[in-house]
Simulated assay, not measured.
Amino acid sequence: MSINIVDRHKRILDKLETNGYVKVNELSEEFNVSLVTIRKDLKVLEERNLLFRSHGKAIPANPYITEHHVTIKEKLYSKEKSKIAATAAAILEPNDSIILASGTSVIEFARHIPPLNGLTVLSASLNASIILAELKEIEVMQLGGSVRSSASSVVGPIAEKMLSEFTFTKLFVGVDGIDLDFGLTTTSAMEASLNKEMIKAAQKIIVLADSSKFNKKGFGRICGLEEVDQIITDSGIDNRTKERLIELGVELTIV
Rank of each mutant, 00 (worst) to 15 (best):
Y64E: 10
I99C: 00
T66F: 11
I130P: 08
E67Y: 14
S82C: 08
S123F: 01
F52D: 03
N95S: 15
F52G: 07
A86G: 00
A89I: 00
F52Y: 14
F109N: 06
S105W: 01
S125N: 08
T87N: 04
K81E: 11
T66D: 07
L122W: 01
G118H: 12
A128S: 02
I113A: 02
V140H: 06
L135H: 00
F52Q: 04
V121W: 07
T71Q: 08
P94T: 12
L116Y: 02
Y64T: 15
S150F: 11
T66E: 12
K79F: 11
I72Q: 09
V140K: 15
S129W: 07
S153R: 07
N127P: 05
I99A: 08
F109Y: 00
A85P: 03
G118C: 13
Y77F: 13
V155Y: 05
V154Y: 12
V70I: 10
E108S: 03
R148S: 08
T104I: 14
S123M: 11
L50A: 15
D96S: 05
K81W: 07
A58R: 03
T87C: 05
I131V: 02
L100H: 02
V106D: 06
S153T: 08
L116Q: 04
I99K: 01
T66Y: 14
G103P: 03
F109V: 05
T87H: 06
K136E: 02
R53G: 09
A85W: 05
S153A: 06
R111H: 08
E47G: 15
S129V: 06
L116I: 10
P115G: 08
I131M: 04
I138R: 04
P114E: 02
K73C: 13
R148H: 07
R48E: 15
T104G: 12
N127I: 08
S150C: 11
S97I: 09
I98F: 04
A86F: 05
S146Q: 09
L100I: 04
S125K: 02
S102K: 11
E108L: 03
K75P: 03
K136C: 05
V121N: 09
I91W: 05
V140I: 14
I99P: 00
L135F: 02
V121A: 06
A58K: 11
P60S: 15
S146I: 05
G118L: 11
K81S: 09
L51G: 08
L100K: 02
G103V: 09
F52R: 10
V106W: 02
A90I: 07
L135P: 10
K81C: 10
E74R: 12
N117A: 11
L76F: 12
V155T: 07
G103E: 13
S125R: 11
S78M: 01
I65L: 05
P94C: 11
E74I: 04
S146Y: 03
S150V: 14
Q142L: 10
S149H: 07
L50I: 14
E134V: 05
N127Y: 00
G145R: 13
N62A: 10
A89D: 04
